[in-house]
Design a protein around this nucleic acid. Sequence first.
DNA 1: AGCACGATCTGA
DNA 2: CAGATCGTGCTA
Length: 175
Amino acid sequence: MIVARELLGKIVVRTWNEHLLSGVISETEAYLGETDTASHASRGRTPRTQTMYGPPGRAYVYLVYGMFNMFNVVTEPEGVASAVLIRGLQPLQGHEVMRELRKSGKGLTDGPGKLCQALAIDRTLNGIDLTAGQPLWIEDRNIKPGPIYSGPRIGIDYAGDHDRLAERRFWIEKG
DNA sequence: AGCACGATCTGA
DNA sequence: CAGATCGTGCTA
């Protein structure tokens, strides 16, 4: 929750094939823990959710719908399965390469699946340390906060009423 | 072993 | 609004 808001305005940086790709985080979603029926962690500890239970500051990357990767940041200490899904970025550097990586569609980094394509993020990056630089990390340049909006999360109709309606999606003004 | 179903996106 | 597409977790 707190981290989801704090991540807004921070920079995701990715190095790929000698290229530097980056963008400002503009939309996030918080997935709280085993009690959050919208979270993968609600099914307990499984092979896939391992990294969510691991130390914070790592990447939790998984595949949905058989074709899209989702990029999350693990937030709580080891043992607690909490993560923040990165849903949107405002591209900063590497527009050309991002376009190339995405090939089809219009948006570049608006949407969790799209941004993973644009930044060449897949499950091979699952579990990596996001505070250790290459090949993927998060930077805190001091970007002015601006107003933060919130609303219910997307694509979680399977969750129980409480979690489905809870406002755990956050975003800032679009570019 | 088999099955139902996604933390999505695209094009009609 | 339907289809793509396959890993995961549940049931047996």
